[in-house]
Computed example of a mutant assay.
Amino acid sequence: MTAELLYSKDHEWVRVVSDGVAVIGVTDYAAEQLGDVVYVDLPESGDEISAGSEMGEIESTKSVSDLFSPISGTVSEINQAVVDSPELVNSSPFDDGWLLTVSFDALPEDLLGAEDYKAFTAS
């Protein structure tokens, strides 16, 4: 878990990298719960995504789960490395295993800070 990130209750993280641009990924907690990730399906560049709505799918040796967008905006880039090597979600969820970048206008108020997310996953 990383302090400068924001977290959704659907276990995605958000890193604001510049004014109106954020990177989205899956938390280490989610990656651990999923087990070995073998497939990631992401939206395409230019697609509009909405906070709380399905934006893709992640498949592991245990299950298939929907990915939910923590913010609303336009997809600017997907991480082709994670599509080609989905195991990056497990080995480096906060660095090499990021999913996509999004241009956004505002962050939702329901995103959690690191301590609140830690408490949420502990309960």
Rank of each mutant, 00 (worst) to 15 (best):
W98N: 07
D96R: 12
E87G: 15
T74Q: 11
L107I: 10
T61Y: 04
F68K: 13
L100V: 15
E54Y: 03
S76F: 12
L100I: 14
F104K: 04
E57C: 10
L67S: 00
S60F: 07
V64K: 13
I58K: 13
S50N: 08
S69C: 06
E57K: 12
S50V: 01
Q80V: 14
L107F: 03
G52D: 05
S69Y: 01
W98A: 09
S60C: 10
F94S: 11
L88H: 02
S91I: 08
S76G: 12
D105Y: 05
L99E: 02
E57T: 00
G52R: 03
F68L: 12
A81P: 12
P70S: 03
P93E: 05
V75G: 03
S63M: 08
S91V: 07
L88P: 05
S91W: 08
T61H: 01
I71P: 02
D105I: 01
V89I: 09
G97I: 13
V75M: 00
A81Y: 04
V75I: 15
K62S: 08
G73Q: 09
Q80L: 10
D95L: 03
D84H: 03
S85M: 02
S92Y: 10
S60W: 06
G97C: 07
P70H: 06
K62T: 02
E54P: 03
S60G: 09
E48C: 11
E57W: 00
V102P: 00
I71N: 04
A81E: 02
V89T: 05
N90E: 08
A51Y: 00
S91N: 09
S103M: 12
S60I: 02
I49H: 03
S85N: 14
A106M: 11
S91M: 08
S45E: 10
P70W: 00
V102I: 15
I58R: 14
I49W: 02
E57P: 07
L107K: 06
D105A: 09
V64N: 14
S76D: 10
S53K: 15
S65I: 01
S85R: 07
V89M: 08
M55A: 04
N90V: 15
V102S: 06
D105K: 10
V64Q: 14
G56K: 05
I58D: 13
G73M: 03
E57Y: 02
V83T: 00
L88M: 06
F104T: 07
L67T: 00
V64M: 12
G46A: 10
P86H: 05
P93A: 02
S63E: 04
F104H: 04
G56F: 01
L99G: 09
S103C: 10
E54G: 06
S65K: 10
S60H: 10
I58N: 14
W98R: 05
E77P: 05
E57N: 12
F104M: 07
S91E: 12
S92R: 10
S53N: 13
W98M: 07
A106Y: 04
E77Q: 08
